[in-house]
């Protein structure tokens, strides 16, 4: 039984069949990579998990509960966090504020008129946010305005925000795009560490094969809206279907 079970998901945009009969099974506590050429429908698939899109048909079960038709904030409260392909952060707030908002959101997902105490007096939240920034190696940038960060830093910040929420399932849409090699390696180490320490399940979309093969225990290859192969990493490289999908996508 997987923590995330996707069965027969279809999604069309007008005449374009972005997802057709997608099946996916993410085992609890594993890192599952979703790869495929540009436009294969990878991001669209993740959108169906977080309440951004509702599939035309099919089921998406998380922890045996259907995610379809549930509001985005409720899905997050169930324990699903996502790092987006284009960073979604609070651009005109500071790095530290970005992370501490995620910390507060974890605690009071339900509305709480927390209007009289000051943010500065919430020591536990401060410690948590600080620790998170230390973990992603951004503590020295805590007072910078988020919009002034580099693309790679924005993504690391977003990752810190998601991790601060202690998700059960972390969805990562190209988490290392725009990062320098050293930062990419740091990110791989960070994700490995977190996975080992907390056992968070991760579904990761990535074009960088170095990242994929360093992290993934299972890989699904998506091409033109369908999963053409799902297998262990060592069997993926030599698979002729995969090679064809990538070469086919090149022209």
């Amino acid at each position: 039984m997987g923590i995330l079970e996707v069965k027969g998901v279809n999604k069309s945009f007008g005449g374009l069949r972005a997802l057709s009969d997608v099946n996916l099974n993410v085992e609890e506590g594993t890192v599952h990579a979703i790869i495929g050429p540009n436009g294969a429908g990878k991001s669209t698939l993740l959108n169906c998990f977080i309440g951004k899109l509702i599939p035309d048909s099919g089921t998406v079960l998380f922890d045996n509960q259907s995610l379809l038709g549930i509001q985005p904030h409720e899905i997050n409260q169930l324990g699903v966090s996502r790092v987006f392909q284009t960073p979604e952060i609070f651009s005109d707030l500071t790095v530290f504020e970005n992370v501490i908002i995620a910390c507060f959101a974890k605690r009071d997902g339900a509305f709480e008129l927390n209007a009289i105490v000051s943010v500065a007096s919430q020591k536990d939240m401060h410690e948590k946010a600080k620790q998170m920034l230390i973990d992603v190696n951004m503590i020295d940038k805590r007072n910078e305005i988020a919009s002034s960060l580099s693309r790679g830093d924005k993504r690391r910040l977003e990752m810190a925000m998601c991790l601060a929420q202690d998700p059960k399932l972390l969805l990562l849409d190209e988490p290392t795009a725009g990062m320098a090699r050293a930062d990419t390696n740091n990110t791989i180490d960070l994700l490995k560490e977190i996975q080992a320490a907390r056992g968070i399940t991760m579904a990761i979309i990535e074009h960088d094969m170095h990242v994929v093969f360093s992290l993934a225990e299972k890989i699904s290859v998506l091409a033109q809206g369908t999963v053409i192969v799902e297998d262990k990493p060592e069997n993926i490289k030599g698979n002729p279907k995969v090679q064809e999908a990538y070469l086919g996508g090149a022209h």
Binding site: H73, R82, S91, L93, E97, I101, A105
Partner: peptide
């Protein structure tokens, strides 16, 4: 802080629970 988050990126706030 939540109010400023609304102004900055309401979508992100929703996806943050």
């Amino acid at each position: 802080l939540m109010l400023r988050a609304v102004k900055s990126n309401q979508q992100r706030l929703n996806y943050t629970g």
